[in-house]
């Protein structure tokens, strides 16, 4: 990947992700429960959903093709926010239909990438 969302050098601290960042100062990966919480918050913010609605998502909840808010441009925003807040990098080959089909699929992907980072 050419453009990597590095630790932000923008004057000292990570100010771009700011308080969103899931990684602590030592760069440790977030616990899976945190990935779940963060992913729900990202979906809430990007798709302008209620917290109660995203809290109700289970592994089988349909995303792309099921949530009218999740159009292709929202997908781009979703991926960018996932990279930023979860401190992961999304590659070309990651983007397939399965990943966005259900909340469980997206969560599995996010957790796997968070553990690798």
């Amino acid at each position: 990947m050419i453009i990597e969302p590095e630790q932000d050098p923008i004057v000292g601290n990570d100010e771009t992700g700011g308080n969103h960042s899931a990684s602590d100062k030592a760069g440790r990966v977030p616990a899976c429960t945190n990935v779940d919480t963060l992913l729900r918050a990202i979906l809430r913010d990007v798709l302008a959903l209620d917290q109660a609605q995203v809290d109700g998502f289970d592994h089988e909840t349909g995303l792309f093709g099921h949530l009218p808010e999740l159009d292709s441009m929202a997908v781009a925003t979703l991926f960018t926010e996932m990279e930023d807040r979860l401190d992961i990098i999304i590659e070309d080959e990651d983007v397939d239909g399965e990943m966005l089909e259900t909340y469980g699929g997206l969560l599995t992907f996010a957790e796997t990438r968070a553990l690798e980072s």
């Binding site: 453009i3 990597e4 969302p5 590095e6 932000d8 050098p9 923008i10 100010e15 771009t16 700011g18 292709s72 441009m73 997908v75 781009a76 925003t77 991926f79 960018t80 990279e83 930023d84 999304i90 070309d92 983007v95």
Partner: peptide
């Protein structure tokens, strides 16, 4: 500075949008 962003991250979101759009 309100919710500042590096130039790299600003570009990254555009690259992501272009890629998703091209794929579609």
């Amino acid at each position: 500075r309100f919710a500042p962003l590096t130039g790299a991250k600003a570009l990254r979101s555009l690259v992501m949008a272009q890629s998703v759009s091209a794929r579609e």
